[in-house]
Computed example of a mutant assay.
Amino acid sequence: MEGVRTRPVLVYDGDCGFCTASVALARRWIRPRCDIAARQWADLEDLGVAPERAEYEALWVTPDGRVCGGAQAVAGLLSSARGVWPVAGAVLRLPPVRWAAHGVYRLVARNRHRLPGGTPACALPAGRGPGGRSPSRT
């Protein structure tokens, strides 16, 4: 059957040097069993992803179309790998670790333009976030 995904997809910001370096690191060391696509070249409509959401966080899209973002996207990526990585992914999904991971993800996302590999193009769009709120308040 055409168009049916059998692998999850990680969507990231291909214009961000920090995000691109993070994906390269994941491909090399974690070796997730998923497809990885920059939001700028991904068919977001086919993935069921709002372009606005893909601007402010990494997204994990399961083969059945469920979408999670931020730290939970990282948890999905880790869970798709082999070795010890799925344990780390499972831990990231547990409260209160999930709550702390969300805060850390937001902190990194807000400051990714200041991190190694980051450039001014990495800065999040102003006023973007869930429900139209600023990412700093999500």
Rank of each mutant, 00 (worst) to 15 (best):
T119K: 13
C19M: 10
W85D: 00
V74G: 06
N111E: 08
E55G: 08
R137P: 00
R66Q: 14
R7G: 00
P120Q: 11
A54H: 15
R7H: 10
A50D: 15
D64W: 13
V11D: 02
L10I: 03
T119F: 09
V97Q: 04
G118T: 09
G127W: 06
R128A: 13
Q40Y: 13
G103D: 01
G17Y: 00
D46P: 00
R112Y: 00
E2M: 12
G89M: 05
Q40S: 02
A123Y: 09
A100W: 15
Q72F: 09
T62N: 02
Q72P: 00
L59D: 00
A58Q: 14
L107D: 13
Q40F: 10
R31P: 04
R39Y: 06
G48K: 05
C16M: 12
A123R: 13
L107N: 04
A54D: 03
F18A: 08
E57A: 15
P116K: 05
A54P: 11
P135R: 11
V74W: 00
G83T: 06
S134M: 05
L59P: 02
R31M: 12
L115E: 12
A58D: 01
V104Q: 04
H102Q: 10
L10A: 07
T62Q: 04
L77Y: 08
Y56Q: 12
A58T: 09
A100S: 03
G70S: 07
L124D: 03
L115G: 03
L124M: 10
R53C: 04
A38G: 10
E52L: 11
W99R: 04
L92C: 09
W29C: 07
D46C: 06
V9K: 00
R27W: 08
A126K: 13
G83E: 02
A81V: 11
D15H: 07
E2F: 15
V108P: 00
Y12I: 14
A58S: 10
V91E: 02
M1C: 06
S22G: 12
W60N: 04
D46G: 14
L94Q: 15
V104T: 10
G3L: 14
R66W: 01
G65Q: 11
Y56R: 11
Q72V: 01
P32N: 07
L78Q: 10
R31V: 13
G118L: 09
G3F: 13
T119E: 03
P51F: 02
R27S: 05
G118Q: 09
L77Q: 03
R31H: 10
D46S: 15
V49Y: 12
T138D: 11
E52F: 11
A101K: 08
A88P: 00
C19F: 14
I36H: 08
G65A: 05
R106W: 01
T119S: 12
A109N: 13
G70F: 01
G117C: 15
A123I: 07
C16Q: 04
V9Y: 00
G65D: 07
G129K: 08
R82C: 03
A88E: 00
L94H: 06
T119G: 12
L124H: 08
H113D: 10
C34T: 11
D13S: 09
P86S: 09
V23F: 06
L107R: 14
P130R: 14
V11S: 03
A50L: 11
A88T: 05
